[in-house]
């Protein structure tokens, strides 16, 4: 019983962490272009400027 007192909150916290991570990813638009994300990994990073996603 005593172990439950901290184990359950820990389990719930970890679960909630995952959930909030997913919701954050969703809100920041990471699911908007799944096909593009898969291809962009192949584009060389050197060719890009500091602004990030835009290549130059």
């Amino acid at each position: 019983m005593t172990t439950l007192v901290y184990l359950i909150p820990v389990a719930l916290f970890l679960g909630a962490l995952g959930l909030s991570g997913f919701l954050w990813a969703l809100r920041s638009g990471q699911y908007e272009d799944l096909d593009g994300a898969a291809e962009r990994i192949l584009i060389e990073a050197d060719a890009r400027d500091k602004e990030g996603p835009r290549s130059n």
Binding site: E32, D33, G36, E51, P53, R54
Partner: peptide, 8 residues
């Protein structure tokens, strides 16, 4: 800036 969305 120009951004391509491959899915759409």
């Amino acid at each position: 800036s120009a951004r391509v969305n491959l899915s759409t």
